[in-house]
Amino acid sequence: MTAYIIRRLLIAIPTLLLLVVASFFLMHTAPGGPFTSERPLPPEVLANIEARYGLDQPLWKQLWDYLTNIVLHFDFGPSFRFKDRDVNDIIAQGFPISLTYGSLAFIAASVVGISLGVAAAIRHNTWIDYFAVSLGIAAQALPNFIMGPILILTFTLWLGWLPGGGWNGGQWQYLVMPVIALSTSYMGNIARITRSSMLEVMNSNFIRTARAKGLPARTVIWRHALKPTLLPVISYLGPVFVYVLTGSVFVDLYFSTGGLGQSYVSSALTRDYAVLLGVTILYGGLTVVVNLATDLAYAWFDPKIRY
């Protein structure tokens, strides 16, 4: 098992390297650069700026310098757009925010989604089932960019219960709407997957056996049915965890949370190369770790899987 984990982490290094190289060249092929502006800079000014950021060097040299700086100094370079800050700064400030509301949204989506799905499956074809299914579909049909404005209108303007945006160190009032907006559509999906998986498991032979043994329904569900039910849910949850962090741009946009999602998208639009690459590496690394965690979770949920 330990050997497996080490092997997976070692494979991650060339994977990330490939990601950086590909992103680097893709980024540079996009027309315009960080200093293209409506007011074209005089050539001598542009030359000074490019010299300062090393953009006057050949591409391979820029890439080499970039990589050596990361490896030797853990320095992801200066932001080309925010002159007072560097990439380490931007990530250190934005990532904890994204991670906080992202994790909360992930937990909310998983707990509520799985509960809804299980409730619907064990009360199959009753009003609980119909209610859970309708709720799931409604949640799924409301992507976060629709949920955002609806929530703000309801809770800020009409009810006046919650502040319309901001972060304020992550106080709960500022967390409620971002977490709801981000979690609903995943919640719906999780409920649907759990429900169909549970229905299938409940009809399988080993559950019939368990029931035939005279085990109480509670034990059958908790001890025998839940684990296999969750296998397809786990494989869905892995990518979702990365999505709630990367896909958080809408939350940042509507709720001014100051997370990394907004910085990521705007860095692509403004060609802020260093920020774009830095966040890509972070998200790439995160994906690798989460994939590994998912695979390890498999082994725990399904005794047939061994590494």
Binding site: P149, T156, G166, Y254, S256
Partner: peptide, 12 residues
């Protein structure tokens, strides 16, 4: 306050 969306800003 940084608010990217002008409609959200109007609501606030």
């Amino acid at each position: 306050l940084v608010i990217n969306d002008e409609n959200v800003a109007l609501t606030r």
